[in-house]
Each structure stands twice: as C-alpha cells, then as structure tokens.
Design a protein around this nucleic acid. Structure first.
Lengths: 225, 225
DNA sequence: GAAAGTATGTAACATATGTTACTGAATAAA
DNA sequence: TTTATTCAGTAACATATGTTACATACTTTC
C-alpha cells in the first residue's frame, strides 16, 4: 500500500516537489485525513466549505441533487485531484453541489488558513495553486465566449478564424470529419453542411471535403463583432 | 496629488491593509511604475505577460483587435483595478487582447516571481488574490451554466427555481417587469410571454402580471436535468 | 477492380424563437 | 373621473436550426 507522501506527490499542487519536500510539508502543515465508504457523503450541497479537499485514494463524484430526488453527476474526481479550491476562498463559501465517495476513499482536508500558511511557506505550491485557478479561469472564459455566439454562422466564423490563426493560410486543412466538426460546434451535421453551403453562396468561403478556403476574411471577421 | 501608498491602498489586493502596511509593502517588494499617455499601448495582444498590472491612475481599456482593423472594447479598468492576474500564472502566459490607456495613466507592474514573494510575505494579499480568482471562477461557472440552457423553457425553469430557493414558497412574487425578465433571460418579451402561456397550458405553472405560481415543481426540476 | 462500409451533401418537413404590430389592462397624471 | 402612458398578451409572419431520410461520393477491404 502506498504511503501518504507518494499519494500526495500525485496531487497537482505538489508535483513540483520531490518526496522529501512532500514529507516535510506533511510535518509542517495542519491537515486531517478522513476515510469514506462507498456512497459516503463528503460534503452536502449548502454546507460551509472551510477546507480544501484532496483525493488521496478512491474515486468521488460531484453531484447536483434536486428536490425531486433526482441527481446529476457533474464531475468525477480521482486520486490526486482537488476540490473546493475556488469555493473555500470565495465570499459565500458554501458547496454548490454534493460530493459523494464512490468507492472506499481517503480524503485529505486542509483548512483555509492552513492552505494560506502552506502557500506562504512553499512558493511552489502557491504557484501550482495559482496556475490551477488561472487555467480554470481561461478555460471558462473560452467556454463563455463560444457559448455566446448567437448563430451557427458565428460559430463557424470563429472556428475558421481559429484555424486561420494556427495555419496562417487562406486554404485551411480541416483535420476532422464534418460529424466531429458539428459536434465541436454543438450542432447537427446537416445544419452545418447547409450553413457552409450558404456561406459559399454568399462568397465568404469555398470548401470541399477536407479543406475550407477563405474568400472574404474581412466579412468573416466583421461577423464576429 | 495622492501618493503611491494611497493609490495602492485602493487596490483590491491591498484594501485589508492600513497605510503603514502598504508603505511597508512598497519598500519590500520589487515593482515598477510606468506612465502612459492617451492611446498608449500598455500591452499588445500576443505579448508575453510576465507581470501583474495595477491601475494606479487613469483609465484603461481591454480591446480585441481584428485583422480588418476593427476593435471591440471588452472591459474598462479604473484606478485600483488589476489586470493580467490570471494570464500571468497560466501556462501560455500571453495577453489574449490589447490593453490601451485611455487617459494619462500610471500603471504598476509586479513580476510573476515578485507576486509570489509578495503573497508569501503578506498572507492578507494572498487571501485577497485567491478571493479575486475564486469569485471570478464562480461568476464564470454561473455564466456557463446559464448559457448552456438549450431552450427558453429551460431558462425559465432555472429562473423560477432560483426564485423558489430564495422565497421558499410556491407562490412567487416576481419583482421585475416582463421586459426585464426577458432581458435577464436573453430573449424577446413576446417570446417569453408565449412560453409562459405554454407552460401554463402544460400545467407547470400559473401566472399573472406579478406572480408565478408553481403547479408542478417535479416537472420543472425534471426539465433542468 | 468490385463490394461493402462510411462520410457528406441534399431535401422536405417540424419546431423554436425572433420580429412587428396591435389590443386591452393597469397605472399614473391631470 | 378622465386622460395619458406604460406594460403585458396576442397574433401573423419570418428565420434558424433540428430531424429524418436518402443519394452520392469517397475509402477500405478483399
């Protein structure tokens, strides 16, 4: 059976560290480790979140429970994953969903103030923590932008401009199937085909099976604004 | 003219601190202050972001520029606001947009490693920084959720369930006009009226000008999943 | 090179929501 | 009380996209 040090070394917050440093952290920092059984509730929706959680062993699910009793799985977390990292530092620090252990599991909890202490003492942990939060912000911002496009043509324009940025050519190699492209844009394949044809008719692009040729980049950009 | 200390005291990262502590920070921490004129470019889209920015004086805009030359204002930042806080700690630390000074302005820059040092030395700054990032994550998550609803009925169900959580009653007082409600949900007012009527016909709700009565909460929840 | 399987384009129809304009009800002003 | 103003519901029509089915073109396999 693996020791606590190795388990923790897997965690995104500590994987800059070697075994010795992790052992050092475990000596210096306040924490607690709680075991949960299958279907054990790690946190209820609405509970105060006063600590950062780290999955040391097992696998857990984040679930939204509705008054009707129906539940929906939002995320699955495995060994080394953390949870509550944004909640614990927010003003209204309450869990927005329920966290359930799916197997026998061991969960490490570090209180808010001890996370602060941990970050103060170990800059590498601080950096990793910041990176986790930052990447999350960028990912969510991207998602908001994508979801904000109003029409299919907007989405296609954005998709084309992204490829253009990468390939820096007016003749774009489309590396995925229409089906995949449609899924990526969140629409039906025939809808995508239809709109591509319309854009061709409107003189914006030309296309065949695996390339899209930009005919009027101005108009494509104009569309995105 | 206000001193640097007072200016910095306005910043969200330092407003737990008194004047003395801020002065202390200014002595201990590496930073630089750059002046910009009207329309001066503080950062170009694509530039490496190696430092956190703080607006000490003046007002600046974050803009997306398209190849066609067209620009769109994404955010406006005023005295005390910070920028680049997520970018600087992300893996690909490049500005996704251009930052322009709109007046004469003074901008403080603190390099990534000095932000780490600052946070290590001053737990209150660390806490505030974490809070800023966390609140941003929660705000964006909420936005993603709202944008993800597929139909108008989904949006209305979500709106109703939110009011239900607050008012804890099946008879909900609607505190805003239909026009506002429609704007809030991002649809046209007649579309909203029409869908409310359909939901009444389907036995989900009843409503009049300023109340909505929940008739079948199960079905409303069911819909959101 | 023929046959089978898969991806794409196309068409007809269904549905959701936007758009515009109008009517009647509620509210405020005179 | 009357009049004016704002707000909500309603209806007719336009448009975007989903849905389903099918035909055609490409790719793979033998």
């Amino acid at each position: 059976m693996k020791g606590l040090t190795e388990r923790l070394g897997n965690c995104v917050l500590f994987n800059d560290m070697d075994v010795k440093e992790v052992a050092n952290v475990l000596e210096k920092v306040e924490y607690r480790v709680n075991p949960f059984g299958k279907e054990g509730i790690i946190a209820h929706e609405g509970d105060e979140c006063t600590s950062l959680g780290i999955v040391l062993e097992g696998y857990i699910e984040v679930r939204k429970t509705y008054a009707s009793g129906k539940t929906v799985v939002l995320t699955k977390l495995y060994e080394g994953n953390i949870f509550g990292e944004a909640i614990v530092f927010s003003k209204l620090h309450r869990y927005p969903s329920t966290i359930v252990s799916m197997t026998d599991s061991k969960i490490m909890h570090i209180n808010r103030r001890d996370v602060i202490a941990l970050c103060s003492s170990y800059p590498s942990v601080l950096e990793r923590f910041m990176e986790v939060l930052s990447e999350r912000i960028l990912m969510l911002s991207r998602k908001v932008r994508e979801l904000s496009y109003e029409t299919l043509r907007h989405k296609i324009c954005s998709f084309i401009m992204e490829m253009f940025e990468k390939q820096k050519s007016n003749i774009l190699k489309v590396p995925i199937t229409r089906q995949n492209m449609a899924e990526h844009l969140g629409v039906q394949r025939p809808s995508l085909s239809r709109e591509l044809i319309r854009m061709k008719e409107d003189g914006l692009i030309d296309f065949d099976r695996d390339t899209i040729t930009i005919k009027d980049i101005r108009a494509l950009e104009e569309f995105l604004t």
